[in-house]
């Protein structure tokens, strides 16, 4: 907190209101104490700057590049913000509220006059605005605006408006689920294309009309090789099941139930039975199809009690 700026009372509970209240106090506190530059404006640092940026302007180093003004008062390798630095104080408030990430968005510098080697700068800063919470592409955040003023012997020589976005980083996406993946081929593609759109598809012989599962190229009844499919109602009963306790499998928490379900259409289909107590599953229990979206490329059929 700025010197003389009291912390926000604990009675203020709403996080946004706490931030606004802290901002009001810091804005009212105005400028922090001037902080002197480590070095006077000097030719070696100007030359390092023009060399690094490739700036061949012959006006330098007789005058300092105007855009270099902030360089003179940078904190340096081991620099720490002063206790009364308003941006540091506001940053702590927003960090505590979970807005821990930062990105600079705007910087506007104006120069009253050129600076020459030998001049000694000091900088002071004040908080001017804290706006939020706002939804941004990076996440929810607050725009924090400060104005810094550089002086030489009290004479203002440059000013800078600086705006940052302090934002709450979105939670990282959940790690992809690793599950054993089915072999998809010309015989089975229709089945997995079906689960992807929420359909349980059952192979149907294009010759005799018999339904069959699992898929295959040839009808086991008439021998024809013209398979088509129908979309099943998705309702059936547990025909048989196992409760898997061991070994552990990737993407599954043990114990889990694998049920062979006889569909209303008469064919039997395997899938995990979810949402049922493994100890209470029984043969004949009514179930319906469920779809377990693993990722953008795989949706597994599953069962749930009905």
């Amino acid at each position: 907190m700025s010197a003389g700026v009291a912390p926000v009372a604990d009675a203020v509970q709403d996080p946004a209101e706490r931030i606004r209240e802290a901002a009001r106090r810091l804005v009212e506190a105005g400028d922090c104490a001037p902080r002197p530059a480590r070095d006077p404006v000097n030719e070696p640092m100007i030359n390092n700057w023009t060399e690094a940026l490739g700036d061949a302007n012959p006006a330098y180093p007789g005058i300092a590049p105007p855009a270099m003004v902030q360089v003179w008062t940078m904190g340096g390798l081991h620099g720490q913000r002063a206790d009364d630095d308003p941006l540091g104080a506001m940053t702590r408030v927003l960090d505590e509220a979970g807005y821990t990430s930062v990105v600079a968005t705007d910087c506007a510098q104006t120069y009253a006059r050129a600076l020459r080697p030998g001049e000694r700068l000091a900088v002071r800063a004040r908080l001017t605005d804290v706006a939020g919470p706002k939804r941004t592409a990076l996440g929810e955040g607050w725009f924090v605006t400060t104005v810094s003023t550089w002086t030489v012997d009290g004479e203002p020589v440059a000013e800078m408006m600086f705006r940052i976005l302090k934002f709450r980083p979105p939670p990282p996406p959940p790690p992809p689920r690793q599950v054993p993946r089915p072999q998809v081929n010309r015989d089975t593609a229709y089945f997995w294309e079906g689960t992807a759109v929420g359909e349980l598809r059952i192979q149907k012989c294009g010759e005799c009309g018999a339904l069959r599962h699992p898929p295959g190229p040839m009808c086991p009844r008439c021998g024809a090789t013209r398979p088509g499919y129908v979309v099943a109602s998705g309702r059936g009963e547990v025909y048989s099941f196992v409760v898997h306790h061991h070994p552990p499998l990737p993407g599954r928490e043990v114990p889990f139930v694998v049920a062979l379900v006889e569909l209303e259409e008469g064919v039997r289909v395997l899938g995990e039975l979810r949402g049922a107590d493994p100890g209470a599953v029984r043969i004949g229990a009514p179930v319906e199809v469920d779809f377990d979206r693993i990722d953008d490329e795989l949706v597994l059929p599953a069962w749930r009690p009905r």
Partner: peptide, 24 residues
Amino acid sequence: GLVQRCVTDWAGPAAVVRAVSIRL
């Protein structure tokens, strides 16, 4: 500094830079 240089390279050494305002 590079935004400033882009302009002063063109404007020449007698130009006086009054302001540089950028959005990142």
